[in-house]
Design a protein around this nucleic acid. Structure first.
Length: 485
RNA sequence: GACCCGUUCGUCUAGCUUGGCCUAGGACAUCGGCCUUUCACGCCGACAACAGGGGUUCAAAUCCCCUACGGGUCGCCA
């Protein structure tokens, strides 16, 4: 039987990083095994689910490069893939369960149950349904329904223990009296997660359920339902949680938690995918850098660990830097473009018309940053002369050789439009001979004259990318400000 | 509280199935050095862990038991 896995998010917003990892492992497992990856939208919670959020999920998956084989928009032979479109199916199965005695109608009201629950928690014990409606007769049910009472449908925990087989955790046997009879369909007809997930996975022929291990405790309920509907349970793989730096489940209060926020912050999808793959999974060699293609080949559930992983923003950043440095420069420019425009350094028109030049600028600073959004900070040197001269730059400018170097530099570049690398280097060599200044005092004088800072990209780049007119203007302005005129 | 799951450097992890190759390997971070006309990149090095206690064994990070700690679930949320 061919392998089928699914990613089943609720459409309540952008995909959260924890879910990205779940989606990724499902995807990688499917692709590594030649199986199918299915997208199912779990929108049974009508209050929180929206169609707009569903779109966000498509966007996020597309950005990440997680393509699926079947889904709401894509179709497939096991659809529909949106749970709200499957209510008939859920009702049909529920009726069957009632007929066969696996489920029953329960007329207890929410208020009644809440009171009991409260009482239980006050007494320090877990709340388990008392079974008040477990044995109503057909007549009683008909009578109450005739009176207009609404019933929920409750599933009977019909056996004392249930075995869950998990690829990561092994076999786990759960006592069912820990949860008792549970509701599968609300009085208003809306089915409950633990129920629909089983019906859908069974009907969609899902062979492996890969999800976060926060679902592990729910699994015995689901395993019970599989048995009741006469379906073989899929193989489960409960993957460890992702924790925040404080070791609590990663959530909004830890800062960035949706893919979209990471994207906006300047992370590359390659880094996201690669980094996420390393959370609770490792390769059999000591490598850590992988392309998606390599991951598809190497991924194995056998190498997924059991313990939760703390999300390490530092390591993600490091990895992002690696991918930034390995990008084709024209592609990197496209990626940085929005950030450059937003910073006001240059507009789209300028960038497009001076593509080669801007690429040269980018090339000279790309080693310095780890986030796409950092690009403008480092590119700034090419677009603006800072108002102030830094303290260290002032020191360099105050060297007694500096004025001579700069004056000479000015005179040697005069009349030219641009310096090419060769003439820039020749000029520096000449200045070195004529002023008998070399090394730091020589280069720093020029650097500080042009940029007002001791830090920045190589002078080779700065001197050749900026037009001579700009170079001249900057040096003159700086000399004046530094009192060297 | 009950039931489940988990526990190797600060963090991600390798090793655990099939005990000896582990004086526990790699990566991020940190610190130091080298490279370099600056910053960075890169390279080299240092620091740093088997949760604790009992067994079993010639030998345990690896097997067994207990304790502790962490996490998850206990919804007419998913």
């Amino acid at each position: 039987m061919s392998i089928r896995v699914r990613f089943a998010p609720s459409p309540t917003g952008h995909i959260h990083v924890g879910n990205v990892r779940t989606a990724l492992f499902n995807y990688l497992f499917a692709r590594s095994q030649g199986g199918k990856f299915i997208l199912r939208i779990e929108d049974t919670d009508l209050e929180r689910s929206t169609l707009e959020s569903e779109e966000l999920i498509y966007e996020d998956l597309e950005w990440l490069g997680l393509d699926y084989d079947e889904g709401p928009k894509k179709g497939g032979e096991y659809g529909p893939y949106r749970q709200t479109e499957r209510f008939d199916i859920y009702n049909k199965y529920a009726e069957k369960l009632i007929e066969e005695g696996y489920a029953y109608k329960c007329f207890c009201t929410k208020e009644e149950l809440d009171t009991e629950r409260e009482k239980a928690s006050k007494e320090g014990r877990a709340y388990i349904y008392g079974g008040k409606c477990a044995h109503l007769t057909k007549e009683e049910i008909a009578e109450r329904e005739a009176r207009g009472e609404k019933a929920s449908i409750r599933f009977r925990a019909f056996k004392p223990t249930i075995l869950v087989q998990d690829m990561i955790h092994g076999d786990i046997e759960f006592p069912t009296n820990a949860f008792g009879d549970f509701i599968i369909i609300r009085p208003d007809g809306a089915p409950i997660y633990n129920y629909v997930v089983v019906i859908d996975d069974a009907l969609m022929k899902i062979t492996h359920v890969i999800r976060g291990d926060d679902h592990l405790s729910n699994t015995p309920k689901q395993a019970l339902i599989y048995e009741a509907i006469g379906e073989k349970a899929p193989v489960f793989a409960h993957i460890p949680m992702i924790l925040g730096p404080d070791h609590a489940k990663l959530s909004k209060r830890h800062g960035n938690t949706s893919v979209e926020e990471f994207r906006k912050a300047g992370y590359l999808k390659e880094a996201m995918i690669n980094y996420m793959s390393l959370l609770s999974w490792s390769s059999d060699d000591e490598r850590e850098l992988f392309t998606m293609e390599e991951l598809k080949e190497k991924f194995s559930m056998k190498r997924v660990s059991k313990s939760a992983a703390v999300f390490d923003f530092d390591k993600l950043k490091w990895m992002n830097g690696i991918y930034i440095r390995s990008k084709e420069i024209s592609e990197l420019l496209e990626l940085c473009k929005p950030y450059i425009i937003e910073s006001g350094l240059a507009d789209e028109k300028y960038i497009n018309e001076n593509k080669e030049k801007v690429e040269a600028m980018l090339l000279s600073v790309r080693d310095n940053f780890t986030l796409l959004s950092d690009a403008p900070t480092y590119l700034k040197v090419y677009f603006e002369l800072p108002d102030e001269i830094t303290e260290e730059a002032m020191e360099m400018l105050n060297l007694e050789t500096s004025k001579g170097v700069l004056d000479l530099f000015l005179s040697k570049i005069a009349g030219k439009e641009y310096l090419d690398l060769e003439s820039y280097r020749a000029i520096m060599k000449e200045i070195q001979k004529e002023t008998l200044t070399k090394g730091k005092p020589l280069y720093m004088a020029v650097r500080c004259g042009i940029t007002r800072s001791t830090k920045g990209p190589e002078m080779d780049s700065v001197a050749t990318i900026l037009p001579v007119a700009e170079l001249t203007e900057r040096i003159k302005a700086t000399m004046e400000k530094a009192g060297m005129a």
